[in-house]
Computed example of a mutant assay.
Amino acid sequence: MKPPFRWLFWLYRLGREACPERSRGEPKRRSKIKAPHFMWGFLFLLMNHEVYILYSKTLNRYYIGSSSDIRVRMQFHATSPGYKFTGKAGDWEIFLKFFCENKKQVLAIENHIKTMKSKNYIENLKKYSEMIEKLKNRYSDR
């Protein structure tokens, strides 16, 4: 499943064209048309929520997390202070990541994986992709 980056760009441009003074950095004018504001609701719905699992060789540990922007989150983990869990090692690499439908599903799956508390379970998630599909079906809104 490819992330809908084209839709996000299209909605961003639509908001800027509807209210061009905002794109030039001019102060916000009071008007009855609030075209750019409707855009953020759509952007929130189209955000790519994903569950990720990091692995550190030095600690031989896994870290389970979720984010809508994995690049920003990885940068946070790389620069986190030493008293945080991911700050204890500098060699975190992405072990597994997968997209979900919405934030509610992401948080439910992340919580499920954390409550399992098993390295074998995490390694089996990577080995058997049908486990991920079963989790997505189990925690879907349908």
Rank of each mutant, 00 (worst) to 15 (best):
L45G: 03
F76Q: 15
L46W: 10
R71L: 10
F99N: 03
K57Q: 15
S56Y: 12
G87Q: 01
D91G: 08
L59G: 11
K57C: 04
S68M: 05
G87T: 06
F85L: 06
L46M: 05
N60H: 13
N60V: 10
G87Y: 00
I94K: 00
C100W: 02
H77G: 08
F85G: 04
Y55F: 13
H77S: 09
S68L: 08
R73S: 07
H49K: 02
D69L: 11
L96I: 03
R61I: 04
Y52G: 01
K57D: 15
K84L: 09
I70T: 07
T79N: 14
F99V: 06
S56Q: 12
F95P: 01
H77N: 11
R73D: 05
F42M: 14
L96N: 04
R73I: 09
T79D: 08
F95E: 05
F98Q: 07
R71H: 12
N48S: 10
G82N: 10
F76I: 13
F44S: 09
G87N: 08
T58N: 14
R61D: 15
I53P: 11
Y52V: 00
L54V: 08
V51Y: 02
V72H: 12
E50V: 00
L43C: 05
G87R: 02
F85P: 04
A78P: 08
Y63S: 06
E50W: 08
A89S: 14
A78F: 03
N48P: 07
R71P: 03
I53F: 04
G90N: 14
S56K: 14
L46V: 05
G82K: 10
G87P: 00
R61H: 15
Y62I: 02
V51A: 00
K88R: 15
Y62A: 06
L96C: 01
V72N: 10
I53S: 04
V51N: 10
I94G: 06
F99Y: 01
H49D: 07
L43F: 12
S56L: 12
G41C: 08
H49E: 05
N48Y: 05
F95S: 04
G82S: 13
F42C: 10
H49I: 00
Y63I: 04
E101N: 09
Q75F: 15
Q75E: 14
L43I: 13
Y55I: 00
Q75P: 07
F98W: 08
Q75K: 15
E50C: 00
R61G: 04
I53E: 07
L54N: 06
G90L: 01
H49A: 05
S68C: 03
Y62K: 05
H77I: 11
Y55W: 15
